[in-house]
Amino acid sequence: MTAPLASAPALAARHPALDIRNVNKTFLVQGRPIEALAGITLTVEAGAFVSVVGASGCGKSTLLRLILGLDRDYSGEIRLDDRLVDGPGADRAIVFQEHRLLPWLTVEANVGAALLHSGLDKPARRRAVAEHLELVGLEAFAKAYPAQLSGGMAQRVAIARALANRPRFLLLDEPLGALDALTRLRLQEELKRIVASEGATAILVTHDVDEAVYLGHRIVVLHPRPGRIAAVLNVPEVARRDRSSPQFVALRDQVLELLGVVHAPAERGVGAGAETTA
């Protein structure tokens, strides 16, 4: 558990950056309570990249909404840098599965919208927008409208928007889930580079097990109904570097097994696309 922290210098305070304690969340569906999350306890150190995997309906996105502060109707505690979450804040940003760019604003205005209430003056905002568009390789498209972009480009703008305010926490809600396979691979690469360069603490929710292994320092496996943590696994550095390494394949198979996907013995081929069953 200490290995992935190598990139993040040990903070003076020993508090984890994100501290989730015994969180339970219940929805009322047609008058009947449905348990969405049960007894979630998880700590994430500053600078870590944590992947959360699970079948649909396991409460992955709900967990992100709670961390964002969009929904405060739950029991348990969520602390960010030792402060209880009491609403959305500038220290957190999210990339949704759909890019959610405002179609009537240009690319740069969309990214700039994240900085409107940052306290920065106009030149500083403009600089931050330019920097982050460069970071995602879209500086040439600053004046374009979202409708003129491909899905992958739009999602890169959404990533730039999320990072523009230099959040301590980057929440990723299946950000690549709606993209085609090739674009997804390319963006996984970019996401990894960008998050590392920004030094943000990232929490990625995904149902793509390969993605979880390739991007995360740690993998949190959730079981559904109610959503609860089945296992927390460390990802060896080798696995994060090389998708065909035995470590990668072994870890992926272990996660798939935890998710209850039928698992053939070891002689199974390498590199087969992984999909969980719903």
């Binding site: 969009l70 959305p88 804040g89 500038a90 940003a93 949704f96 405002l102 209430h117």
Partner: peptide, 10 residues
């Protein structure tokens, strides 16, 4: 979805 985005972007 846009309202949620507006909340997140403060």
């Amino acid at each position: 979805t846009y309202r949620e985005l507006s909340d997140v972007l403060l």
